[in-house]
Amino acid sequence: MYTCGIDVGSRSTKVVILDEDSTVRGRGWRLTGGKPADAAHEAYNEALAAVRLSQGSIDATVATGYGRRLVGGDVEQYTAVTCHSAGIYHAFPNTRKLIDIGAVRSAAVKLNDHGQVHRFRFNDRCGAGLGRFLERLAETLEIPLEELGQLALFSRDPQEVPGICSVLAETEVLNHITRGKKPADIIRGVSEALAERVASMLRQVWTDDGEISLSGGTAKNAGMVHALEEVLGKPINIHHDSEFMGAIGAALIARETIDKKLKTGTSA
């Protein structure tokens, strides 16, 4: 039995296919761009090709992310918060607090003991774009995005960057460059400012118990993770598939719906 999760984010579209043991068998990834439906379709085909399956062998599919309504077909939809929570709870069952840092939106979620969403909080409209902001920073500094986080760890003299508005932060980054500041110190300053922003969101859903997990592509950024751990004063669980966590959660939910149907006998 195979289930599929499609996560149409504002920046990128992720698709995973899970097998019976809830192991990831195939992944698909595309930039979402101006045509989310096409991106979803292409990423879906890529994931199918990776498992060498035809569309007919997928038993259930769930779509999530901001563009979930554009996927089309007979696909159930769940919110990104629900799917990320499902994915993270499956990977780290002791998680009670989840931070999802996406390209444009971030969420802090409190989970109950059964992994269900108890309470959550989005970033307000502004202060959006943590993931995208890091991407732009990488571009400005001419450093590959994958290396950005590593570099921040070498900073000795973090430069202050305003944390509230991404636009003003970017101006300040350019000013630091003009003053000849080191990229590592600039990145470190940005990471600290962003971490503080995320932490203040998390404090609104705060409980002291349980582990903290991070999902979304930003979890691959070691500098951001380090800055977050420092601000929160606690280690954070990171999954190697963090970028696909929404899609994995969606596929897990698809699996649950099948199980439920089987139990009630409405479908074979």
């Binding site: 901001y66 554009l70 444009v104 502004c126 636009v167």
Partner: peptide, 23 residues
């Protein structure tokens, strides 16, 4: 008025299936 807000609006339009040219 604000780039961050404008970006959010563009995303909302895409979600609503609007044409890229009109955006």
């Amino acid at each position: 008025a604000c780039s961050v807000f404008a970006e959010q609006e563009v995303i909302n339009y895409l979600e609503g299936g609007k044409e890229v040219e009109d955006i």
